[in-house]
Design a protein around this nucleic acid. Sequence first.
RNA 1: GGCGGCAUAGCCAAGUGGUAAGGCAAGGGUCUGCAAAACCUUCACCCCCAGUUCGAGUCUGGGUGCCGCCUCCA
Length: 487
Amino acid sequence: MSLSLYNTLSRRQEPFKPLEPGKVRMYYCGVTVYDYCHVGHGRACVVWDVVRRYLTWRGYEVRYVQNFTDIDDKILNRSRQEGTTMEAISERYIAAYFEDMARLNIKEADEYPRATHTLDGIKRLIHELETKGFAYPSAGDVYYSVRKFPDYGKLSGQKLDERRMGASGRVSENEEAQKQDPADFALWKSAKPGEPAWESPWGKGRPGWHIECSAMVRECFADSASNHLGETIDIHAGGNDLIFPHHENEIAQSEAVTGKPLAQYWLHNGMVNVNGEKMSKSLGNFTTIRQMLDAPNAPEPMAVRMFILQAHYRKPIDFTDDGIAAAQNGWNILKAGLLFGHEYGERLGWTGSIETQADAIAQFRTVMDDDFNTSSALAVLFGLAKQLERASNLLIHEGETGEPSDLLESQWLTLVELASVLGLEAQPEPEQVPSISDAEIETLVAQRTEAKKTKNFAEADRIRNDLQAQGIQLIDKPGGLTLWHRS
RNA sequence: GGCGGCAUAGCCAAGUGGUAAGGCAAGGGUCUGCAAAACCUUCACCCCCAGUUCGAGUCUGGGUGCCGCCUCCA
């Protein structure tokens, strides 16, 4: 029984073997910080967070690095619009990123390299590419010559001669004219007047987009102790919209210099769709994470996480209000299960020395080992949570569960452990000062019972509604007995 | 045009060739003055056609439909 994962590079599921036994080097191509993150970013972050958590739970020592692209045309445009600096914009949205992702319970990466902090490494890499003949200067810019790299296209399956070239409206004719081949891409762009710029052997300018990741992987995973120079990492992850050209170009840059694979496994998450179309800025069909979580009737963050994990990470998911609402209902069950021990553990005399359930854990592991089948993993969680929710209801309604206490404890411990691997966690709410005391409730319940005896149902229902409005649920039992609980 | 992916119940969604996980919603039953809550319970032959096989949702070929990338993008 071993972990296997789908590798975009081979288009196959492969057994996972890290370069160094027990250790995993993982890099996730993060976001360009020119705006708030939307649900699509949220999905990617959740998915890779789960992969990272799972590998850790599986016993690997994981080094997880995620970059921020903080040099970019869109950031620049925004800073001009607002009359401020590129740095001010990126700082703002990096701070927002951390706020949003903390709400989704994304664990922080081990390192967050930024383009602006990687300039030396970027320039060194460009220089090496130039020395080896893969890069050429042109009117102040420096370009990568894709024809010099025979493997170009191995990740995306693109063949240079079969692509539609020059169809881009975004690339200026000027830039197009400076390239030896339309598929060549910029490693370094010369500064236009008024733009932020860094000194370089090619004049003042700024790095192209793709080069930062190549440089960051190299720097963040350089480890002289283990004889690795950051040449090859185990897992390189990102959205499937990055396969081409971004990841293809990263490979071209890094492997041209090192002659070694940049990453063993290339993993790509599917997109979040809206009405069947990809959520994206350009289509204007995006919802930011904070919009979603701060809306009236907003779902709980954990419900959103569950919504994301109900589908396989490589498939597209459709973002709809109904889907989120359904996930919220489902989360309520998991949450009830996760809170069970906090609410009833003491009352049930739990000892804390119970073992988890090996069969559920084995099942969870089997499905997660199969390219992170979180959908099936959730089914394992629901199996446990449903039983705990039932037990919880029985305690409220019958005063007993009919189940052995240590079985429940074992189920609960298992649920909590496995859920946390998926980053699904529920905290007991702090005790609130009740708006109405137990004694008052008892009095009202007694009054209602009297009213019922005299068939004064209007009064009985009034009391019931009043209590309901205060969050007190009445439960009429056979024989005229009425139980109540705070919901 | 090139590359890749997807099509499973009302909705979402897993699925290793041997008679379809899970979630949501819905229905029925018990209980109730009515209700709520709770408990019990019901609910698919897998886009179409052909083929391989003792046996296919699961493999092969063809068809239809949808999506992504080829331009910034998680």
